[in-house]
Amino acid sequence: MKESRLTLLIFLAPTLFFVLVFIAYPVVYSAYLSLSEYNYASDPTPKFIGFKGYIETIFEDSMFHTALINQFKFAVPYFVITFLASLILAILINELRFGASFFQVIFYLPMVIPLSLVGITFAWLLFPDVGIFNHFLRSLGVSNWNIDWYGDPKTALNSLVVARSWKMIGFTLIILLSGLQGLSKSLREAAKVDGANFFQEIWYIVLPNLKPYLLISGVWILINAMKTFELVAVVTQGGPGMATLTLYYYTWKLAFERLDMGRASQVAYITAVIIVLFSWGLNRLFKPEAASRA
């Protein structure tokens, strides 16, 4: 018995080491930092201040308020576009008799491109003077169409939404498609026999049975919606002004521009709590009944 425990421990040791050093320790230490005042360059050690820092961040830090508002302005359209587009595309591809694999590959391809590269590519596509998109718009006859998509505060955040959705749709599409392909065909055939049209089939048969996959996709999109960093860092650096300042980018700014590790940890933990709360909400919304899974 002792030997088997020892063997177990030996095999678990590398993973345990990894989890403890690279996950548990940073989580615990950053939690401690979030309860401290600590400028990395000038303070020798963190100074414990309890929840005072959280209270200041939530109620007094106007940059945090801007980042929070921007984050939701980004997350809502991103969630809706990515979720609906991948669901609609998955349903359509599932209906195809030929070429389904081709479209799966096509839509999945952006997933293999690094997000920073997507940012650079879209920055060029949407460039005001020489970008292809404005050029296309001008070719439609609007001669002075010269929108600076990423440079104008009115359009910058939504332009980021488009770039990120384009990249991420492929992944949720694959998840949903695997769910659709796993559904029993007899259910839809029975609905057809009862006189249901295509849309009624989708609404009453497909979507209720797809709930576990909708939940996974929803949570994944939500987490990504709240983790907006690379695109902002590469394309807009939070600008123009603070028009694209997001929570993750603000965390980075606090940590590596201001070197304020305490405030940076507070914003990171608040973001984590928001993600957990929304994931819990989604879980409640899409949680399948035990009976329907049986």
Binding site: D152, P153, K253
Partner: peptide, 15 residues
């Protein structure tokens, strides 16, 4: 600079 970035471009861009 963060505070200036928040307000000066907003006004410069007419918002």
């Amino acid at each position: 600079l963060d505070i200036l970035m928040k307000y000066l471009p907003e006004a410069a861009f007419g918002r």
